[in-house]
Simulated scan of single mutants.
Amino acid sequence: MKAVLYEAPKSISFRDVPDPAVDTDTILIKVSYSFICATDIKTYRQGHPHIVPPTILGHEFSGIVESVGSDVESFSVGDCVTGSPFINCGTCESCFRGRPEVCSARKFPSNGAFAERIAMTNEYAKLGLFTVRPTFLRQAALSEPVACVLNSARSFNPRPGESVLVVGAGFMGVLNALVLKTVFGVRAYITDTNTERLKLPASLGIEIVEDTEKLSGFFNAIILTPPIPELIIRYQSHVLPFGHLVLFGGYAKGTKALFDPNMVHYTGSKIVGTSGFSPFDFKTAVNLITDGAIDLNVFMTNMYEFSSSEFQKAFIDAMDGRALKAGFIL
């Protein structure tokens, strides 16, 4: 099968690799759509502590079940599905404490989603594979980033009518604001130093904050999507008492940042981090998408064929910011 193989930082190739191995308990999926994530770009640029080359990148996908082993009962050939890029072990300390999103012994499918096929065991599929209606197959490929947003929201429990400012109008920033506005009923605001990137969220009814240098308002929560440490102390003073400053983006190893401890002490405001998602978050994301509660078609304007030349173009467009969200049609 054709696949994108990550060989080392700044070294990826489009090549033929063996199909995933199958057994009596295996579900083999023909990938229909997959999307490039910021983690894929970061891995390409500088490596990733949990992604060891050589390996196939990609973890946002949907597809159609191509074959099932004789021991598989819950899925059938022809099912439209989307899958979680990992499931939690259920036995480590984090899982026992009810925080599966930081499980220390995650389990993974056969390979990444930048490939024509991906396989899961029946055991994996019980937690990590979901059927979707055919009309939502492409949107369902973005279940994982929606799940990450839902996990982030649980860190500050937004209520209808509360104000939330999202800093950064990249894909995850706009998705945060859209989900918070649509699903949680908050007053969603967004800001970015690149005013061109604010056109899409404005068209979605998200309120725009253009000049953050003159920012004078206060918010129940502020979500920082860019991993820029200087933003922490800059926006901390705009969090309401008992509000939350949410560190959504992943910072480079060894990053240090300043914050005002008196604001935490005297106002009860919190600085919280969020990463990953739980199985419940992923299932909820799939339900929201397939019930039509959120429309993700606005992010699907940069789709590429899954070929050697188009794969390179997609990665370059994603890295250079020309594509808000780059995806492959397989």
Rank of each mutant, 00 (worst) to 15 (best):
Tyr6Ala: 07
Pro9Lys: 12
Ile12Asp: 06
Ser13Ala: 11
Phe14Tyr: 01
Arg15Asp: 05
Asp16Gln: 07
Asp19Ala: 11
Thr26Pro: 08
Ile29Phe: 03
Lys30Val: 05
Val31Cys: 06
Phe35Glu: 05
Thr39Asn: 04
Thr43Leu: 12
Tyr44Ile: 10
Pro49Asp: 01
His50Val: 07
His50Asp: 14
Ile51Ala: 14
Thr55Gly: 05
Gly58Ile: 05
Gly58Phe: 00
Glu60Ile: 08
Ser62Glu: 06
Gly69Asp: 10
Gly69Arg: 07
Asp71Trp: 11
Phe75Lys: 15
Val77Ser: 05
Thr82Asp: 01
Pro85Lys: 00
Gly90Thr: 08
Glu93Ile: 12
Cys95Pro: 13
Cys103Asn: 11
Phe108Val: 06
Phe108Asn: 02
Asn111Glu: 15
Gly112Ile: 02
Arg117Glu: 15
Arg117Gly: 15
Ala119Tyr: 08
Met120Glu: 09
Glu123Tyr: 15
Gly128Cys: 03
Phe130Cys: 05
Thr131Glu: 04
Thr131Gly: 02
Arg133Phe: 09
Arg138Ala: 15
Ser143His: 01
Pro145Glu: 01
Val146Lys: 07
Cys148Asp: 07
Val149Gln: 08
Asn151Phe: 00
Arg154Trp: 08
Arg154Lys: 13
Ser155Val: 04
Asn157Tyr: 14
Pro160Asn: 10
Gly170Pro: 12
Phe171Ala: 00
Met172Thr: 02
Leu175Ala: 04
Leu180Gly: 05
Thr182Cys: 10
Gly185Met: 14
Val186Tyr: 13
Val186Ala: 12
Arg187His: 11
Tyr189Cys: 10
Thr195Arg: 12
Glu196Lys: 12
Lys199Thr: 08
Leu200Asp: 02
Pro201Asp: 00
Ser203Lys: 00
Leu204Arg: 00
Ile206Ala: 01
Thr212Lys: 11
Glu213His: 13
Gly217Ser: 15
Phe218Ile: 14
Asn220Thr: 12
Ile222Ala: 11
Ile223Tyr: 05
Ile223Glu: 09
Leu224Met: 11
Leu224Lys: 11
Leu224Arg: 09
Leu224Glu: 09
Ile233Met: 09
Arg234Gln: 13
Arg234Met: 12
Tyr235Cys: 10
Gln236Glu: 13
Ser237Pro: 00
His238Leu: 10
Val239Ala: 06
Leu240Arg: 06
Leu240Gly: 03
Gly243Gln: 03
Leu245His: 01
Leu245Asp: 01
Leu247Arg: 05
Phe248Leu: 02
Tyr251Lys: 04
Gly254Phe: 13
Thr255Glu: 06
Lys256Arg: 15
Phe259Gly: 00
Asp260Ala: 15
Tyr266Cys: 14
Tyr266Thr: 15
Gly268Trp: 14
Lys270Ile: 13
Ile271Cys: 02
Val272Lys: 03
Gly273Arg: 09
Thr274Met: 04
Phe277His: 14
Lys283Cys: 10
Thr284Lys: 12
Thr290Gln: 11
Val298Trp: 11
Phe299Leu: 05
Asn302Ile: 05
Asn302Gln: 07
Met303Trp: 01
Phe306Val: 03
Ser307Cys: 07
Ser308Asp: 14
Ser308Arg: 09
Ser309Asp: 12
Glu310Gln: 13
Glu310Arg: 07
Lys313Asn: 04
Lys313Gln: 04
Ala314Trp: 05
Ala314Met: 12
Ile316Asp: 00
Ala318Lys: 04
Ala318Phe: 15
Met319Asn: 08
Met319Val: 06
Ala323Leu: 10
Phe328Met: 08
